[in-house]
Every structure is written in C-alpha cells, then in structure tokens.
Nucleic acid binder design. Structure first.
Length: 1020
RNA sequence: GCGGGCGUGCCGGAGUGGUCAAACGGGACAGACUCAAGAUCUGUUGCUUAGUGCUUACAUAGGUUCGAAUCCUAUCGUCCGCACCA
C-alpha cells in the first residue's frame, strides 16, 4: 500500500494558506512578548525553466529552520521574493519574441506555484518583485540619496564590454577574461562614461567587520581577499618626458566694459597671473602665446577665433583659459575638433546672465567628443568663487570630465582675489606634472629598481610616450587588443619602451619606463617600480628585454648570482648596493627607507585595496532606470524625488544595444532645474543594486510612502539567519553589506552595521554521475517530477538526508526511494498503532534523548543526522504507545515532512495544527542511560580474567599464576583499590598498571589494546 | 601562481584523540511470510583456527601519543575561489 501523498499534501497546503498560518507582523497581538527571528533565503532569479533541485535544496533548508524557530515560540519572518530584473530575462524574452515583463511574470507564477508544492512556510503576503515600479522606485530613491551624499559619481573608465550582452560588466562578472554569462565571449575593454558607487569608501569597515560575522570561514576569507587590503609605501618618481609640450596658449577673459586703458600696449585686461606665468614659462624656453582678443569686452566668437588661430595649435599644445576665455576655448575645441595635449580652465564661466560677454558667447552646446581629443582636462576653481562660477565648473566638468582643483580664497582668480600675480599651482600643472606616484610593498628594494612599468591600459599612457616611440607603442597596444583577455592571462610578460625615463628618488638614477601588459591600470597608480632581482614578474620581463638585474637583498644564507639564478629572490635578507642602507635587515629597511622618503617629501605610507568602486551602469532595458537627466545648460541633474518612479517605457523595440537609447519619446524631457531641453539617462542599474536592500523591503513591502517604516527595521533587522549559495560570496554579499552601512550613514536605517549576522551556505548538488546538473549532460532532475511521483515530503526528506547540507553531494535516486519507503512505514504505523495510557520507559528515554540531540542538530543545520534520529525513533516505536510520545515524535518529523505530520497529527486527535504547535521539551528525568549502557567494573574484569585463564588452560594446558592488568590512567584508581578483591576472586598474583606506567611488564603488547572500560590482560 | 576544502567499507555518507571493525541509508546475501513474485519483517555483510583473536582497515609515507580515521609534517589525487594587486 502506498499512502496518498497527493491528497494529503494539497489538503494541508491549502489549509495553511487559508488560515494564514505563516503570516506575521511585528505588532500582532501576542507577538510582542515573542522574540523575533528573521530567516531569509537568497531570493531567486526567476527563469522560465522553473525551480531546479538546487533551489529545492536551499529552500527546504530554510523552511526547516523557520518551522523549527516558529515551534520554539519565536515570531518568525520567513519571506520570499523575486530578483526579476536582469539580462537573462531580457535575452530570453527577445529570443522568445515576448516582452521581458511578460516573460518574468510567467516565470514568477511558475516559481510561486512550485514553491507552494514544496510545502514551504513563507509569509506570502510580503512577496516582492524587483521589476515592479513599486519596488524599483526605491532603487531610484536610494540612488538619489547616495548621489547627494557623494557616494555616486560618473567617471570615464575602461570598462569590460561584452559584445554578446552588449553591455558593460562589473569586474566581478568577468570570469577568466570572458563574460560570466557567455564563457566563450572575450570581454573587450572600452572607454565609457559610467556611474560608479564608492564602495571603496567603506573598504576598511567592510574588512574589519567581517570578523564579527558568524559566517562560514571560507566565505569570510573570500571577502577579505576580495577587499584585499595591503599596506605599503607610495613613492614619487620624477618622469623625464621626452615628449615636450610644443607650446602654451593662454586666452584671457573679458572685462565688463570698454575702458580707455584696454589697449594693446598696456594689456591691462589680461594682467592677472598671465604675465607671471608667461615669464616663468619663457625662462624654461617654452613657447607661450597670450593673444590679445579684439574688442574683448564685446567678445565675438568669430573675431576671437580669427585672432586665436594665428597661433599654431597641435597635439602637444597646452591651452589655458580664464573666465569667459574658457567658454571660448571649449567652443573652439568642439568647433574645430582639434586634438591637444592639455586643457586648463581657470575659474571658467558659462552663465550668460552674469557673464560679461554677450549671451550668445556662452549659449552653445558642449561637444561631448572633446574629452576624447584632449589628453587631460584640469579645472581650477576656488572655495569662495561666486555661485554662477561654481555652476559653470559643474557644467564643464559634467561634459568634459577631468580633474577639479579647488584652491582656497582664490575667488575668480583675478589679481584682486589672489592678491598676487603668482600662480605656482598652474605652473606646476603645465610643466611639473611629471611626477608619478607608484605603490610598493617592498620599499626596501628601491635601490634595485632598473626600470618602471606603466599599465598598457593606463588612461594617461600616451602622455609618457615620446613621438619617436609612438609607433612602437601603438603597435603593441594593437597587438594587445587583438588577443582576448583569456589568452592574455597566459601570455608572457610583455611591454614596450615609452621613450620616457624615471628618476629614482633615492639615487637619482635614470631608468626607462615601459608600457607593460602585466600591470593593472586601476590598482595603485597604474605604474610600478620594477625590481627584477626581487620580483618574479619583473624578473621575467627584464630577462626578456635584457634589462639590468641588480641584487639589493642578500639572503641570510647563500648567495644569489643572477648569471646562474633563473628566478627572483623574493625572501628576506640584508641590504646590499643600497648606499647608507647597506647591511640593514630588509624588514627594518622597509621602515627606514619609507621614513627617509617621507622626510624628503617623496613618499608616504598608504593602504591600498583590491576592492574597486562598484560600476552600476548597464546599457540594457530590463533594469531600473537611473534617475538623472542631461541638460545642455545645467549638465547632469538628478530627478526630483517627487517625480519618482521613472518608469520603464512599456513599448520598446529590441534590436542592437539598449532600446532605451532609441526611444525618442521616453528620452526627451524637460530639465528639472531650468525647464529647458534635456535627455534622460538611458543606462539602467546593475541588478545587484536591487538585491542589496531587498531584505529591508520585505519588512514593509506594501508601503507606498517610504521604502520601509523605520520601526519595522528596528524590530526585524538584522537578518538572524541568511541562507544561500557560495556563488554570492563576494558580489552580492559585499554590495549588501556596503548598502547597509551606507543607509545607516544616510540615517535611513537605525544603527545596524551588518545585515546578515549568520550565514549558512548550502553545498552544491551534483547529478548522480558526479557532474554538475546541466541540460547538456542530461542529468537534470526536476523537483516537480519527483513531487508528482513521490510527494514533496519524500523529496524534502531525501534532499536533507543525502548529506550534511553544507557539503556538496550527489543526487541519489536510492535515497529518495528509501525516504519514500520510510514515510509509507510511518503512515502504516499510524494506521495500526494502539494508543495506550503509558509508554515503555525505554521508549520515553529514547524519545527524550533524541529530542535533546535533534534540537542541537537542527540548530546547527545537521539535518542529515537529525533525520537519522527520527528514523531511529519511528523504527523502534512499539505498536502500543501513548499519545504524548506519538505527538512529540510527529513534531520532530514535521520539520522535514510537514504534510504527513499534519495528517497523522489530525488522525491521532492532536490539537490545532502541528505547524503551530510547540517544539517538545526535553524531560531529562526520563533519560535513563543505564538502560542502554554496558557497565564495566571489577566484577566484569574478574569474569574476563577467569575466562582467559580457562582458555589458556584448555588450549595450551598451561597453568597461570601471574596477571598484569592495564587500564587507562583515569580508570586506574578504581582497579588499584580493588586489587585485593581481584586477587581473592581469581587466585592470581595481580598487578594493575596504567598504560603509561614506565615499569610495566608487557611482552605481548596488551597495553596497546586498552580502551575505556576495557582493560588489557596479560597472563603468565 | 596564491588561498581554501575534500579523500572513510560494495555505494552514498556520519565520525575530528580512546567505548570504532566505524552511525544511518542504499545495495548484496540468507531466513520468515507467500503457490510464486513484489511489499514487509529478521539476520549477515574486513579477515578469522571464532580466542579478552588479527604482522587487517579510514588516499600514501613518516611523526607526536600509553592510544590516531581524528593532531603534526611531507607527498599524491580531487574540487572550489581569486587570478599578473607590485
């Protein structure tokens, strides 16, 4: 007979739902006294394929825990939701020719249905779906908050571009140089303007607090490695750039009105810092022009242009503008599409109403292509600049990027503001930028520097390249582009000479600067000092290009001789060839050389992190729109909070790339600031943004006024038990931890530092063949098929008995069948059991012992062991048992197999639902160990001795008279005290030794066989 | 390359100093029930001359200990994470 699991399971699933058994709230009657407990599983990414076995495993683990905590009397929040945005849905939808929203909704429906069938005890009233405006509105809200706080910024940066996805990938989404979704597609490096979140601001806290978490050690380790803190020294190297700038052209601003003294001869209106800078540059034999613009106070662009173009401008020119001169230069650069080396804007102005030049001089659109043609952009401004000046800085910066330098009390940079015509900061920008910093953890090897390497991906690489080497470098870069990143990893260390030299600050030695393929552009400064004698990478590079290898660390033992050695010496030792630091121990030399450099203002101690800022822009449709607009006049303007949410347009045309970009209707908006023409940002957010705070939204999922009520956060947070796969060890868990801290500092949530106190990682479930479950291998087991054939209870039981949940395991059909058989047995038992008044003491003892063990095991996720105990219990229950024992036994089973437990509970007349019943308490008094334990004492020993004496006599016909007894040290006393009795009862001369006694006599090695409660006996 | 995990009987897997020839499940074998099969139940499942037995066994080789599957060292195999982070 097979029990009707189908009927039972649907019956109880609908009862639970109807009675809202699992719904909770922080203020419900009677729950105030209860302790809260928040159980959370990593929410799934809904796909049309539906639930897979890994999901089933994960959720069963969480469900058992939630049921356990509930029965223990806690107010348990156990919610479920869907991480519904993202590329795969968009791609799948495109492929299927339907809208991603529809695709996602269908997938979710399917998931919900399947999760119900598993008997999971979620509070469905709290369900969230991240692709709904009611959810992502708050993404946009948080984005604005973070932006306000300065935690979000835009930066042009080399990004990982996947040609298949047609979007940018986070560093974390690049695996082995390829897209994580398309392992065969190598990632290209593109330079794009991107939104970043300053996760690095929290690097220290993220690292420090890892230790406070009750997480699996390996996950903590992965987090630490990911954050990758390393202490070292930053050292300034002067670069002798052979690529001298060709000329400098300075454009002055315009005066408010014509005055008599504005003459060519007197040049009054450019008399700020311009004469001084001109003089300084000429001293250095740098060609400088500062044209005097015709009718400066009228500022006609075309007249100015004519005058300005009398100067020859080329790729090595530096252009400097002051005030409205900046407006001129930027317009001119857009107009002529000229390439230049550097653009310096001093106190720029672009606001027509307050500028001195006519309106049309300012009102033009900035060409966004300028930043690609200008090597470097620097903007000087001041803390006490006028508001419109500051606004202008923002407008220029939004379009041109570059660096903003804010000096104190420089106002509008007139001679009246500054009180002097001297402007050394500017001079420095023109000629003195040739100092590059590098990061090293080995300052002790600085005397061994024989070359420098700058990353081939470095944005400022070309500044270092001399005209002579230009072709070589470009050839090298082209070659690099040709190989995929994947190959690049296996590639030799390669590079090319840039034509520049660096000067070693400790001994003024000139060393060549190479561009290399093995230097990471965005770690440290993107340039390294190379010490081939003591760094393996540098060593290989030096060998390849025949660069000098200079040993500066002498090992404590032996010598190194690079005519013989084939690898660098990276160990410790004492210094050689290092001037005054000779013979200093390398560890000590790190300190001393750093101190020396600090003193000379050429270095400082720094901490570097591997953690990068989080790139959140995605060029795809199916995500949260980033809530900003681009205004021609105002630059980047965030959308007003009251205008949220920015809803994704429903009608979209999918073709190449981001369909938002071509949606004219959606893109064109009015600027929230000036009401002028503006365009929407078309990038959407990385879906990790959604999952970084979803655990907070569950607490108040219906709230339309706020992302959540703060009181609810206070009550429920932090998550007490988080459950999910190790695949999220770095990305999701870092972002979510960052988010919690950022929201805390924005005062949006109370003082909660960490979102997930405890984390449990379930192991991977492999196919029966030991391979990953995958369609192509044909070893996928669909949970729904199993439920149909054996029922959810059997599936849950089998999944939990396969192995310890934290370990990887293999799917085993036999275990499933065994589980099913067991449940049938249980069912049969309850059909036949006779309920009596009192149970056997042995059973009571066993039950209580099992309750005790199981409570512990479940608390620690040792579900597989707990199940063994349940089986043991039911296998030993006699057909006559009392109600209490049966009820308690069923409660133990109910965590794993809730449906059959409810059914049997009802059958024997249990009160209410077993799901809402109380977890059985251990009655210690009923545990009677002696019922099971075998005693070992003196009497038993006598018996054993006599037995052996008898055997020896029978076998060998020998009489024995002496006996050595060996016992464990801690048992010795008991036997030594009874020596007389032993002698009397055996008639032998008995000596008792502890096994570690030195003077024992034991030719047979019997003492080695001694175990607790089992002495070794040697007879003679 | 760096970091982490794992390696147990025919199989899946417990066990992390002694009560371990090793839980529990599956399989296999034998028995009971049955005309028979299935289901169910019981027993056996390292070797053994049956002994308080074993120059037997927890990847391999050493070591620590009275005693090691368990601790240490090295090696091999395997899986995972990061990957040129200076």
């Amino acid at each position: 007979m097979v029990y009707d699991f189908k009927k039972i399971e649907t019956k109880w699933q609908s009862k639970w739902e109807k009675k809202k058994v699992f719904e909770v709230s922080p203020d419900a009657a009677g729950t105030k006294k209860k302790k809260k407990f928040y159980v959370l599983e990593m929410f799934p990414y809904p796909s049309a394929a539906g639930l897979h076995m890994g999901h089933a495993l994960n959720y069963t683990i969480g469900d058992i825990y939630a049921r356990f905590k509930r029965m223990q009397g806690m107010n348990v929040l156990y919610p479920m939701g869907y991480d519904a945005f993202g590329l795969p849905a968009e791609n799948a939808a495109i492929k299927a020719g339907e809208h991603p929203r529809k695709y996602t909704e269908n997938s979710i429906k399917n998931f919900v249905n399947q999760q119900h069938k598993l008997g999971l005890s979620y509070d469905w009233s709290k369900m969230i779906v991240t692709s709904k405006p009611e959810y992502y509105k708050w993404n946009q809200y948080f984005f604005l908050k973070l932006y306000e706080k300065g935690l979000i910024y835009r930066k042009k940066s080399p990004v990982n571009w996947c040609g298949k996805c047609e979007t940018v990938l986070a560093n974390e989404q690049v695996h082995g140089g390829c897209c994580w979704r398309h392992p065969e597609t190598p990632v290209e490096i593109k330079q794009l303007e991107q939104w970043f979140i300053k996760t690095t601001n929290y690097a220290d806290e993220l690292l420090d607090k890892v230790d406070k978490l009750y997480w699996p050690e390996r996950i903590k380790l992965m987090q630490k490695n990911w954050i990758g803190r390393s202490e070292g020294t930053e050292i300034l190297f002067e670069i002798e750039n052979s690529n001298k700038l060709s000329n400098v052209v300075i454009v002055h601003g315009c005066p408010s009105a014509e005055k008599a003294e504005y003459s060519q001869e007197k040049r009054t209106y450019d008399k700020h810092w311009i004469p001084w800078i001109k003089k300084k540059l000429e001293e250095r034999k740098i060609k400088v022009f500062s044209p005097l613009m015709p009718e400066a106070w009228k500022a006609d662009y075309y007249n100015w242009k004519k005058e300005f173009e009398k100067n020859k401008i080329d790729e090595n020119s530096v252009l400097i503008g002051h005030s409205c001169g900046c407006a001129f230069l930027v317009r001119w650069l857009g107009d002529t599409k000229k390439k230049i080396k550097k653009l310096i804007l001093v106190a720029p102005w672009k606001i027509a109403k307050s500028g001195n030049a006519p309106k049309d001089f300012y009102d033009y659109n900035i060409d966004l292509g300028i930043k690609d043609r200008v090597g470097e952009v620097i903007i000087f401004t001041a803390n006490n600049e006028e508001a419109d000046g500051k606004k202008s800085v923002k407008i220029f910066h939004d379009s041109l990027g570059g660096e903003i330098i804010e000096l104190k009390n420089h106002g509008h940079y007139t001679i009246y503001d500054m009180g002097t015509g001297e402007f050394p900061e500017l001079l420095n920008e023109i000629i003195g930028n040739e100092k590059w910093s590098i990061f090293t953890t080995r300052p002790d090897t600085i005397y061994g520097v024989t070359f420098m390497v700058v990353s081939a991906q470095h944005p400022r690489l070309m500044e270092l390249v001399s005209n002579k080497q230009k072709k070589e470098v470009e050839k090298f870069l082209k070659k690099l582009k040709g190989v995929s990143e994947k190959q690049l990893e296996e590639l030799d260390k390669e590079g090319v000479f840039t034509g520049s030299y660096a000067v070693n600050p400790v001994n003024n030695k000139k060393v060549p600067v190479y561009a290399g393929n093995f230097v990471v552009a965005d770690y440290g400064s993107g340039m390294v000092m190379a010490v081939p004698a003591h760094d393996q990478r540098d060593y290989l590079f030096a060998r390849k290009y025949n660069i000098e290898i200079k040993a500066v660390i002498q090992p404590r033992e032996g010598e190194i001789d690079f005519t013989k050695e084939s690898k660098a010496y990276t160990g410790e030792g004492w210094l050689i060839n290092s001037d005054e630091f000779d013979e200093v121990e390398s560890e000590k030399a790190k300190e001393e050389i750093t101190k020396f450099l600090i003193k000379k203002k050429l270095g400082r101690k720094v901490v570097n992190f591997k953690l990068r800022d989080w790139l959140v822009s995605r060029q795809r449709y199916w995500g949260t729109p980033i809530p900003v607009v681009y205004c021609d006049k105002c630059g980047i303007i965030p959308i007003k909070e009251s205008d949220l949410p920015i809803v994704l347009p429903e009608k979209v045309k999918f073709g190449k790339g981001n369909p938002l970009k071509t949606n004219e209707k959606w893109i064109n908006v009015k600027c929230p600031s000036c009401n002028g023409k503006a365009k929407r940002e078309t990038d959407t957010m990385d879906t990790f943004f959604d999952s970084s705070w979803y655990y907070l939204r569950y607490l108040d999922s219906e709230n339309s006024k706020k992302p959540f009520e703060i009181d609810k956060v206070k009550y429920w947070m932090p998550v007490d038990q988080y459950i999910g796969g190790a695949e999220h060890a770095t990305m999701h868990l870092i972002y979510a931890r960052f988010f919690t801290k950022a929201l805390r500092d924005l005062d949006l949530i109370p003082e909660i530092d960490e979102p997930f106190i405890k984390l449990f990682n379930q192991g991977l479930l492999h196919g029966a063949d030991g391979q990953k479950m995958s369609k192509s291998l044909g070893n996928v087991i669909n949970p729904l098929d199993i439920i149909k054939k054996y029922g959810a209870d059997s599936l849950r039981l089998a999944l939990m008995s396969l192995a310890s949940p934290e370990n990887d395991t293999l799917w085993d059909e036999n275990v499933l069948v065994g589980s099913f058989k067991f449940l049938n047995k249980v069912y049969d038992y309850f059909q036949n059991v006779k309920i009596v008044k009192k149970s056997d003491a042995k059973i009571e003892s066993k039950l209580n012992k099992i309750i005790k063990e199981m409570t512990n095991q479940i608390e620690n996720f040792k579900y597989n062991l707990a199940i063994i105990k349940v089986r043991e219990l039911f296998n030993s229950l006699p057909l006559e048992t009392d109600r209490l024992v049966l009820e308690k036994g069923l409660k133990l089973l109910s965590l794993f197999c809730p449906h059959i437990a409810e059914e049997m509970w009802e059958k024997i007349g249990g009160v209410g639902l077993i799901s809402s019943s109380e977890w059985p308490k251990v009655e210690e008094a009923k545990i009677n160990e002696s019922l099971e334990k075998q005693e070992q004492d003196v009497a038993k020993l006598v018996e054993d001795i006599n037995h052996v004496v008898k055997i020896i006599k029978e076998r060998e016909g020998k009489e024995v008279s002496k006996c050595w007894v060996y016992v464990l040290p801690n048992e010795k006393k008991n036997f030594v005290d009874s020596v007389d009795e032993l002698k009397k009862r055996t008639g032998l001369d008995i000596k008792v030794y502890a096994v570690n006694d030195k003077d024992k006599y034991d030719p047979d090695g019997k003492s080695k066989k001694v175990k607790p409660g089992k002495p070794g006996i040697y007879l003679e």
